[in-house]
C-alpha cells in the first residue's frame, strides 16, 4: 500500500503530465490550508504549480461543485475524485449541468478523512476520529474515472441497499410537538448564510429562489419561520438527488444537523419507491422525475 505521501507525489506527477500534454486546461485538487488540519480546494492551470497539490487525511472538501465554474468553457477540466466527488460529478452530469466528455476524472481510493473540528480541539498528537460524513460513507472509492491513482482495483457497479438511519427513526418516535421543538431549536440558530446551498453538488440551479429576495419567496428577515422555509424547501429541492456527501452538515457554521432532513427523504424514497441511491449512475431514473402506476396510494 502506498502511503498518502507517496500518493501525493503521484497526484502531482499526474496533474503535471495532464497540464503539460494539454489533456485538460485545468486540474481541480486540494492544496495545503492555513493550519495542519486544513486543506483547501485549488484549481491549477500551470504545470509548475502542481507542486501545491496535496493528498492527506484532511482533504475534506467535495470537489465536484467546482466543475460548475467551467460549465461554459470549451476546455476540458481534470478533477481528482473519491467516492463522494464522483457521485457529485454524476449528480452534475445527470442534472445536465456538465458534459461527461469535458471532464477528465482521476479516481482515488479514499481511506476516510479526519474531523478537522476535532483536530483543532485535540491537537496534533491525539488520535483524531474520522469525520462524520466519512464514518457513514458507503462508497469511499471513485465510482467513475478515466485514470486511477493507487492500487488498481475492480469497481463493480454498486447495488443500492435498503437504508436505516437510527437518528431519523429516533425522531420519528417523538410526539409532534417534541419533533417541532427539536427542529425549531436547530433552525433558530440558522444564520441563512447559505453555505449549505453553496457547497451542495445537488444545489446547482443557475438561479436560486433564495438568491433573489425580489421574488418574495423568502424574506431577508432571520426568524424561525423563514429559516424553516429555507430548510424544508431546500430539502425538497434536493429530494431524490442528494448524494449524501454530508458537506452541508460539515460546512454549517452553527452545526445544524442538516442531513436529518435529507436522510428522512432518502429513507422514505427507499421505502416508498424501492431502493435508490443518487449519483451512482447518471442514466438512472430520478425518483421524483418519474413514477410507477403501482406507487402506493394514500390519497383516495
Amino acid at each position: 500500500m502506498a502511503t498518502m505521501e507517496q500518493l501525493t507525489l503521484q497526484l502531482r506527477e499526474t496533474a503535471r503530465e495532464i497540464l503539460e500534454s494539454k489533456k485538460a486546461a485545468a486540474v481541480i485538487g486540494w492544496e495545503k490550508g492555513t493550519f495542519w488540519y486544513t486543506t483547501t480546494p485549488v484549481v491549477l492551470t500551470k504545470p509548475e504549480d502542481t507542486e501545491r497539490l496535496v493528498w492527506n487525511e484532511y482533504c475534506l472538501n467535495n470537489l465536484a461543485k467546482y466543475l460548475l465554474d467551467f460549465q461554459h468553457s470549451n476546455e476540458k477540466v481534470a478533477i481528482f475524485a473519491r467516492g463522494c466527488d464522483s457521485r457529485g460529478i454524476n449528480r452534475l452530469i445527470q442534472d445536465k449541468q456538465i458534459d461527461r466528455d469535458k471532464v477528465l476524472i482521476i479516481g482515488l481510493a479514499c481511506p476516510g478523512m479526519k474531523d478537522d473540528k476535532k483536530a483543532r480541539e485535540l491537537g496534533q498528537n491525539a488520535d483524531i476520529p474520522l469525520a462524520k460524513k466519512c464514518q457513514e460513507c458507503a462508497y469511499p472509492d471513485a465510482l467513475v474515472y478515466d485514470l486511477w491513482i493507487g492500487e488498481p482495483k475492480e469497481v463493480a457497479k454498486p447495488v443500492p441497499e435498503a437504508k436505516v438511519f437510527p437518528e431519523v427513526e429516533a425522531i420519528e418516535q417523538m410526539t409532534p410537538d417534541d419533533k417541532y421543538a427539536s427542529f425549531a431549536a436547530n433552525y433558530e440558530k440558522c444564520l441563512r448564510c447559505y453555505a449549505c446551498r453553496n457547497v451542495c453538488p445537488a444545489c446547482n440551479c443557475k438561479e436560486c429562489i433564495f438568491g433573489n429576495s425580489s421574488k418574495e419567496w423568502s424574506a431577508k428577515a432571520n426568524n424561525l419561520s423563514e429559516n424553516m422555509f429555507f430548510a424544508l424547501t431546500r430539502a425538497l429541492h434536493v429530494a431524490g438527488r442528494c448524494i449524501q456527501c454530508g458537506e452541508c452538515e460539515r460546512i454549517c457554521p452553527v452545526n445544524i444537523p442538516i442531513m436529518l432532513l435529507n436522510k428522512k427523504i432518502i429513507q422514505d424514497i427507499d421505502r416508498l419507491f424501492g431502493p435508490y441511491e443518487a449519483g451512482l449512475d447518471p442514466e438512472d431514473k430520478m425518483p421524483l422525475g418519474s413514477f410507477e402506476f403501482t406507487d402506493p396510494e394514500e390519497f383516495m
Partner: peptide
C-alpha cells in the same frame, strides 16, 4: 410521489 414524500417530511418535522 411528491406528496407521499412531503407529507412524511412535514410529519417528521412535527
Amino acid at each position: 410521489r411528491r406528496f407521499l414524500l412531503m407529507r412524511r417530511l412535514m410529519e417528521y418535522i412535527g
